[in-house]
Structure formats: structure tokens, C-alpha cells
């Protein structure tokens, strides 16, 4: 078997995901003054009226999964024991980060209300901590 051409795979996947993101940007409806309506329906008349923020959310989740899959194939790892005294792999840590972020956001909504930018920063810090120490 020939050596796997990782660069080609990376580029192809990045191109596909980038193209999807560009498509989403392009589909955001623009009103008469050229102002983008970020919460407008991406495909007018289509079932469920999907909007850009929701689509972006799924795009980020999909991208994370793709990155994790590539990492798992290219750099196989052994689980490690962190400060929680439990064995975790990269996938476990991603799961803990995402689920924890959901609760951080809900907590922020409860204590401070919208908008959630502060919560987002807190989530990034939390995710970094989880990947570094858990």
C-alpha cells in the first residue's frame, strides 16, 4: 500500500467544509439596502425555515467531528488519567467540553441573560482547561 497522502485529504476536506460555509454565507438573505438579514431563512419557502446561526452551529459540530476523526486516524492515542481521576481520550474530552459548554451557557442565561458572548469566552477557557488537564 502506498503512503497515505495526508495533505491531499486535509485540503479536500477543508475545501468541502469551506465551500459549505461559503454556501451558507451566500444563502443569507439580503434586503433592498444590501444589509444581510442574519436570521432570515436560508432557503425561502423550504421546510422548517433553517437560519444561518442554526446552520453554523451544526457546521461547527460537523467540523469538530471531522477534525477529531482525522486526529484519531493519524495520531492514535492511549487514554490518560487526568485531574478527575478518570481515563479520558480526546473524544471524551471533546464530549465533556461540549456538554459542559451547554451548561455554562444555560447558567449564564440564568444569572446574566442574553447575550451570551461572555459565556462563549468562558466556554473556550473551560474547553482549553478540559483538554489540558482532564
Amino acid at each position: 500500500m502506498t503512503t497515505t497522502r495526508w495533505t491531499t485529504i486535509y485540503l479536500t476536506l477543508a475545501l468541502i467544509m469551506g465551500a459549505i460555509l461559503a454556501l451558507l454565507f451566500w444563502a443569507v438573505p439580503v434586503d433592498g439596502d444590501g444589509v444581510r438579514d442574519w436570521t432570515g431563512s436560508l432557503i425561502p419557502g423550504f421546510w422548517m425555515a433553517w437560519t444561518f446561526p442554526v446552520a453554523l452551529f451544526f457546521w461547527i459540530i460537523a467540523s469538530l467531528l471531522i477534525i477529531m476523526t482525522l486526529l484519531a486516524i493519524r495520531y492514535p492515542e492511549t487514554p490518560r488519567v487526568g485531574i478527575l481521576r478518570i481515563e479520558t481520550t480526546r473524544g471524551d474530552r471533546l464530549f465533556i467540553s461540549l456538554l459542559g459548554s451547554a451548561f455554562i451557557n444555560l447558567g449564564w442565561l440564568f444569572f446574566f441573560g442574553a447575550p451570551l458572548w461572555g459565556a462563549l469566552i468562558l466556554c473556550l477557557v473551560y474547553a482549553f482547561a478540559v483538554f489540558r488537564w482532564v
Binding site: 436570521t39 432570515g40 431563512s41 422548517m48 425555515a49 437560519t51 444555560l106 442565561l109 440564568f110 441573560g113 442574553a114 447575550p115 451570551l116
Partner: peptide
């Protein structure tokens, strides 16, 4: 559909 943003989540947590 009309965009509601975080309204429902805010309603629900409180």
C-alpha cells in the same frame, strides 16, 4: 417561522 433567538431558553431557565 419567526426568529426568536435565545428568547425561549431565557424563558425556560427562569
Amino acid at each position: 417561522f419567526f426568529w426568536a433567538g435565545l428568547e425561549w431558553f431565557e424563558d425556560m431557565v427562569t
